[in-house]
Amino acid sequence: MTDVKMTVNGQPVLGQVEGRTLLVDFLRTDLKLTGTHVGCDTSQCGACLVHVNGAAVKACTMFAFEADGAEVTTIEGMAEPDGSLSRIQQAFQDHHGLQCGFCTPGMVMSAAALLKETPKPTEAEVRAYLEGNICRCTGYHNIIKAIMAASGQDVSAAVA
């Protein structure tokens, strides 16, 4: 077992992990942060997407020990300090950007990474950025709408 120390959603955490413990398993099982989902475990689906030191990564394709000393943000860290939904989360609700909700944590974390880099993306840029996130309900149009709205852009013209 290896000791790991990281900051998760602003809180310092300590843990003991096996070498093979995936970051997503450490988050879900040890820290009980079950908002980060496991879809495929092979980096295809993006349900496990979190931010490590500000960069979007798939938590199923990173070992917990690799995040030693890192700052990790999960979907649980996305709400405002008063508990209200963040702009992106609210947009997903307003535009019905989720059906079953399984992919939603990854979609929101991906959207946050995109909007940090590109505050006013085009619809094409949003679609391109979400290549690594799969929605099993195929509800992509409303996800795109939600992200366009969260970026403060008009969504009526966007999205077929």
């Binding site: 475990d41 199923c60 690799e66």
Partner: peptide, 23 residues
């Protein structure tokens, strides 16, 4: 970076005795 190796490990296609982390 583990982006090919880790899916192989998760599928247990690859079963090394030791991982030497180059980071």
């Amino acid at each position: 970076g583990g982006q090919s190796l880790m899916p192989m490990l998760n599928f247990r296609i690859s079963t090394p005795e030791m991982l030497v982390d180059l980071s």
